[in-house]
Amino acid sequence: MTFLWGLLWGLAAVMFIAGGAVIGVWWERKVAARIQMRLGPQQLGPAGVLQMIADVPKLLFKEDIVPDNADKPIFRYAPMAVFAPIAMSVAVIPFWAGWAPLDSTVGMVFYLAFPSIGVLGILLSAWSSHNTLATIGGMRAAAQMVSYEVPRSLAVLSVIVLAGSLQPTEVMDAWQWWWIPLTFVGFVVYFIASIAEMNRGPFDLPEAESELVAGYFSDYSGFRWAIFMMGEYGALISASLFGAAVFLGGYRWLPGVAGLAVFLVLAMVLITAVMWIKWTFPRLRQDQLMTFCWTVLTPLAIVQLVVAGVVALWL
């Protein structure tokens, strides 16, 4: 029975992310167009919303090219290894008072741990493509994601310390509005490190278009390519939801359905902010990226953790 429920929830998470990704593509095109003095999609349906329905079959029916030199079975299944952990990480996000799809006692660590499996998928897809650009992209992705995990986890740790629990729903119960100013630095670190974790601009070096064509997924096409994109948007959605919940209070602002609405709006604001940053900033270089992580973000996160710890003691 539990197994069936798990399967059902897994399916729901995949549908949630896939749907979110399709809407996210449309929304990103609109946001980017606004920033770039364009209109974006507008031909199909009002404001081009039907474009997203047209995009899905296009990606589904495109030829699925597997290079001759590739390590074929791994090449075929590596995208799933990128996508699955991200879909899993959605499970522990607290959507409703006392309810998360998977209300685990170690949910906070779960959330931080599972996306890091995605690095493995990225490295395997890069390796199996048998392509120099993909290999460079994969190496960059591994270095970047493993490094940015540190400030990201430290930032989340400050909330864990304040709440005194690893269970997301308990963290939400303990959440107070004055945590926002208290953990603001932590939130900013989490936000920036999350952008780096999901490989989006200005940290999109692993797939830097102007240098590596598409980095680790250069050789992918059709639906396997779409899975990578879904993974990227899924990471965006998941990180925004989680940040909106544990740092910004999520549903705690208003009771009932209104709280859920506030939560989703907060997440939407974060998603839009990520897009805004991506379409405004140039890309960092690898050494600048690493320096930024280890000399700016990590110390900031540690200071934030100490502050949160002191306050938690005093509580």
Partner: peptide, 16 residues
């Protein structure tokens, strides 16, 4: 979860 965090996300990536 620690096993996943440390080994799959850390050590295994290091090996690869």
């Amino acid at each position: 979860v620690s096993q996943v965090f440390v080994y799959v996300g850390g050590v295994l990536v290091l090996v690869l």
